[in-house]
Lab assay of single mutants.
Amino acid sequence: NITNLCPFDEVFNATRFASVYAWNRKRISNCVADYSVLYNFAPFFAFKCYGVSPTKLNDLCFTNVYADSFVIRGNEVSQIAPGQTGNIADYNYKLPDDFTGCVIAWNSNKLDSKVGGNYNYLYRLFRKSNLKPFERDISTEIYQAGNKPCNGVAGFNCYFPLRSYGFRPTYGVGHQPYRVVVLSFELLHAPATVCGPKKST
């Protein structure tokens, strides 16, 4: 009989979020998941679920829940969905086509923008091939755009693969920082350890 609540607040209220190319993952297990707390949290810009209804989450049990978190621009949030393409979905964070879970995003301009620009948040701009679902690539190898080998030196046709967002408070909404948490639900042939409040007695 599990009684402790799942530590969703640790994920959602973290002081610093990860850059999207180096997205953070927390495994959540052996706890009671009260999703209504999240669902009623006012400032969400997006709360979209795939393969599961957000209002039914509290009735369900899962083997594991993974909480992935990172920061992207407002106009990139739409790429955090199954079957998407674009710089983020291709080179930074890719969801599987059969994704079961929820994508939760909110504007973090007050936290993550600075006058003069916040350059701490990076994304991958160049990559030889697209990421596989949930693949994480933190390499900083110089990207070779031409035929000539770069030998690890940036220059003509040789690019550092990461780019900084440089968030400023005055940017338009599409270019403002958004914090994103992706909850993915794993249902294995194993005992369920993460259940909603109704199922955990």
Rank of each mutant, 00 (worst) to 15 (best):
Q144V: 10
N58V: 02
G152L: 06
S164Y: 00
D97L: 11
G174N: 15
Y35M: 09
V32Q: 08
F126C: 11
N130G: 14
P191Q: 09
G51R: 06
E135T: 06
Q144M: 06
N75F: 07
N107P: 12
Y39S: 02
L60C: 11
Q144A: 01
D9Y: 03
Y121M: 06
F126L: 12
I2F: 04
T55H: 14
A42Q: 01
K114L: 00
P54L: 05
L111I: 12
P149F: 06
V37H: 14
N147R: 10
H189G: 15
N151G: 11
N64C: 03
A192T: 12
S200F: 11
K198W: 10
D59S: 12
A33V: 11
A154S: 14
F45Q: 10
G152D: 08
G116F: 00
N120K: 03
S184T: 12
R73C: 07
Y39A: 13
Q84S: 02
R27P: 07
A145V: 12
S184G: 04
K48E: 14
P54W: 09
L95M: 06
K128V: 02
R163E: 14
P149M: 01
F41Q: 07
Y121I: 14
V194S: 03
D9N: 07
G155P: 14
T63V: 14
T15R: 12
A154Y: 01
T3A: 14
G155M: 02
G116Y: 00
F44N: 03
V32C: 13
L187F: 04
I142Y: 10
K128P: 03
R27A: 10
G116L: 00
R127A: 00
T85E: 01
Y119I: 06
R168A: 01
F156K: 04
K199L: 01
P149E: 15
A46H: 11
F156W: 01
P197D: 11
K148C: 06
T55S: 14
T3P: 06
N118H: 00
V115E: 00
T100H: 01
P197M: 10
G166A: 15
G196Q: 03
S164C: 00
N87A: 14
Y39H: 10
K56V: 11
P169Q: 00
I142K: 04
N4Y: 02
G196N: 04
D98G: 06
N120Y: 14
V153D: 15
A154F: 13
A22E: 15
L5Q: 09
T85D: 04
Y123A: 03
T85H: 15
G155E: 06
A42R: 04
P197S: 02
P169E: 00
V153F: 04
Y143W: 08
N1T: 07
A154P: 07
L60I: 08
Q79E: 11
L122M: 14
V32S: 07
A192C: 02
G117T: 00
T3E: 03
P149S: 06
P43R: 07
N87S: 06
S78R: 02
L122H: 06
G155H: 15
R168H: 11
N40A: 10
G152R: 01
V37E: 13
K110N: 05
K114T: 00
L111Y: 12
D59Y: 08
I142N: 07
Y35A: 03
R168T: 01
R163C: 12
D59M: 11
K148V: 09
S53R: 05
F45S: 07
F185L: 03
D98R: 02
F41R: 10
V115M: 03
I142P: 12
Y121F: 03
S36A: 13
Y39M: 12
G146A: 12
F156G: 15
L60N: 00
P54F: 04
P191C: 12
A42G: 14
T140A: 12
P43D: 09
R27K: 11
F45H: 12
R16V: 09
N118Q: 04
K148L: 04
T201P: 10
V194F: 06
L188M: 15
K198T: 06
A22Q: 14
I142L: 12
G116S: 04
K114D: 00
T140H: 12
V37I: 04
A67V: 12
E186S: 14
L187G: 11
Y123F: 12
N109V: 01
Y178A: 15
R16E: 06
N4F: 10
T193K: 11
L187V: 02
V32M: 08
P7E: 02
K56A: 14
S139T: 11
G152K: 01
V180C: 03
E10Q: 08
E141L: 09
P191A: 14
N64L: 10
T201M: 15
P149R: 11
K48S: 02
